[in-house]
Simulated assay, not measured.
Amino acid sequence: MVRAGIAGLLATEPDFEVVGEAESGETALGIAATLRPDVVLMDLRMPGMGGVEATRRLTRSADPAPDPAPRVLIFTTYEEDDQILAAIEAGANGYLVKAAPAEELAAGVRAVAAGQTVLAPSIAVQLVARAHSGAERREEPGPRLTAREVEILRLVATGMSNPEIAAALFIGESTVKTHLLRTFEKLGVSDRTRAVTRAMECGIL
């Protein structure tokens, strides 16, 4: 009933097309392999394979462009630190809770589809708190980012796209991309979402 309600809600958006539904992680993988959706809205706890493992397989198994892996937006009732980090480390591009209003869910799907990172405010607070706690326990220094790299990463964390960051900082979009690639390399990550969470863990953000 919940899944049908969410699908019905999304189907009312003029720029959305709901192409499939799944009751388990295994089913989601099979449907996604056939339908190749742009975005997968993923719960965490389901019968059989859970959302974290399904996310990991979805984001790792797709062929290279022009047929890239779908972007995954976690949409769940669970807000535990370990679940949040596990989902993001598995490749999720965003994390919203089911208490979110309908307009926030729709905006989150659009943002994730556009390559942005989406975190519910309560989730962002928990990640920051965890990062600060981890920073206090660390003895070895973390990756060293330049002031500009940190500045750009802060804007990424707010959900801004590369063109928006370029306009805000009065630099070229290619310059933004170059800084982000260097940041990814220093942090040992491969995408924007994990860069933000890794920077939080290291106390950089």
Rank of each mutant, 00 (worst) to 15 (best):
Asp82Thr: 15
Pro101Leu: 03
Lys186Thr: 08
Ala129Phe: 11
Ile31Met: 15
Ala86Val: 09
Met46Glu: 02
Leu29Tyr: 01
Gly20Ser: 12
Gly94Met: 04
Gly51His: 01
Met1Phe: 12
Leu187Arg: 09
Arg194Ser: 14
Ala54Arg: 06
Leu35Ser: 14
Val52Glu: 06
Leu58Asp: 06
Val156Tyr: 11
Val97Asp: 02
Gly134Thr: 10
Leu105Ser: 03
Pro70Tyr: 05
Cys202Pro: 10
Ala100Asn: 05
Thr77Trp: 03
Ala113Ile: 03
Asp82Phe: 13
Asp38Arg: 15
Asp67His: 15
Ala69Tyr: 02
Gly108Asp: 01
Val109Trp: 00
Leu145Pro: 01
Ser161Leu: 07
Leu44Phe: 11
Ile123Asp: 01
Met42Phe: 06
Arg57Ser: 00
Thr12Cys: 06
Ile88Gly: 09
Met1Lys: 11
Arg56Asp: 03
Val109Met: 00
Gly115Met: 11
Arg192Lys: 12
Leu119Ile: 02
Val40Thr: 02
Leu181Cys: 04
Ala99Pro: 06
Arg138Cys: 08
Asp15Gln: 10
Gln83Glu: 15
Val18Glu: 05
Leu29Gln: 02
Ile88Cys: 01
Glu89Ala: 11
Ala195Gln: 01
Ala111Val: 01
Ala199His: 08
Gly94Asn: 01
Ser24Tyr: 08
Pro68Glu: 08
Arg148Tyr: 14
Pro141Trp: 06
Ala54Ile: 01
Thr27Cys: 13
Ala147Met: 13
Gly20Asn: 07
Ala147His: 14
Ala62Leu: 03
Asn93Ile: 00
Leu180Thr: 05
Gly115Arg: 02
Tyr95Ala: 04
Ala111Asp: 08
Val176Ala: 03
Glu139Leu: 14
Glu140Thr: 12
Ala69Trp: 05
Ala92Ile: 04
Leu41Lys: 03
Val176Trp: 10
Leu145Asp: 08
Ala195Ile: 13
Ala102Phe: 03
Asp81Asn: 10
Gly108Gln: 04
Arg192Asp: 09
Asp15Val: 06
Ala28Trp: 12
Asp67Glu: 14
Val52Asn: 01
Val52Gly: 00
Asp43Ala: 09
Leu85Tyr: 14
Gly142Thr: 11
Asp15Trp: 07
Leu119Glu: 08
Val39Trp: 06
Lys186Leu: 10
Ala107Arg: 04
Ser61Lys: 09
Arg3Glu: 02
Leu44Asp: 07
Glu164Asn: 08
Ile123Trp: 03
Pro143Gln: 11
Pro101Met: 05
Gly5Pro: 00
Pro141Val: 11
Val18Lys: 05
Pro163Val: 05
